[in-house]
């Protein structure tokens, strides 16, 4: 992480915290932490971290309930945890991918209450009570969702990393009524980057499913 202020190429090693974000962080540490007070007491770092866990659990975590792929999860999460990290790290649902973490690639697309959203730009606490569907929840048991079938048939994937996001987005695209033509599909799927370049095959897969009239 960058910490030095620079002007016109001259590197001034700065007084730490001379601009807002840093200052905010430091003040926060100073103020809010019974935690840091604990951590600052020097016993071995590991131990401090353990004590820290308890304090954090008591003061910092927020209890939420999420319905993920039909299963109810009661969770306690730090407010800063994104829905994406919660799915991948805590619920071990790694089908939802982290491609950029800044809402610029679409790999983390999931459905929240039926709408496609980017889980990397959603805080888990803000989804309390909502129904989340990830790629793992799309198939009906062993029976693949029509779009999953179509992606295989049309080879709408290569490395597979953008694929869950593409499929979740494609399902939404059809449900939104924005898959009526190839140009329309291309426009409304443009939030999902595929670096391998499977785009034409993905469009074919979506066209086929949409034209088949199957329920998605």
């Amino acid at each position: 992480m960058a910490r030095n202020k620079k002007t016109d190429g001259v590197d001034e090693s700065t007084e730490p915290g001379s601009f807002a974000p840093n200052k905010a962080r430091r003040t926060f540490l100073k103020k809010s932490s019974a935690l840091v007070a604990l951590a600052l007491t020097p016993p071995p770092v590991l131990k401090a971290a353990e004590m820290e866990d308890q304090v954090t659990a008591a003061f910092e975590k927020v209890k939420i309930t999420l319905h993920v792929n039909g299963t109810r999860h009661k969770l306690a999460v730090e407010p800063r945890v994104t829905l994406l990290d919660l799915l991948r790290e805590d619920l071990k649902l790694t089908g939802t991918k982290k491609g950029c973490d800044y809402g610029q690639c679409g790999a983390c697309t999931v459905h929240v209450d039926g709408k496609r959203v980017l889980s990397c730009l959603s805080l888990a606490v803000m989804q309390n009570g909502r129904k989340i569907t990830t790629i793992e929840g799309l198939a009906d048991g062993e029976k693949l969702h029509p779009l999953q079938e179509a992606f295989i048939k049309h080879d709408g994937l290569q490395c597979g990393y953008c694929t869950p996001g593409q499929i979740m987005s494609a399902v939404a695209c059809i449900r939104e009524g924005q898959a009526g033509s190839e140009p329309e599909i291309r426009e409304y799927m443009s939030g999902n980057i595929c670096r391998c370049g499977a785009y034409p095959n993905i469009v074919n897969a979506i066209m086929e499913v949409n034209q088949s009239g199957q329920k998605v």
């Binding site: 790629i135 198939a139 693949l144 992606f151 295989i152 080879d155 994937l157 597979g160 869950p164 499929i167």
Partner: peptide, 13 residues
Amino acid sequence: DRVDGRLKVTGAA
């Protein structure tokens, strides 16, 4: 068809 297609479209890869 891609032999690992199913794993990739289900998020199981």
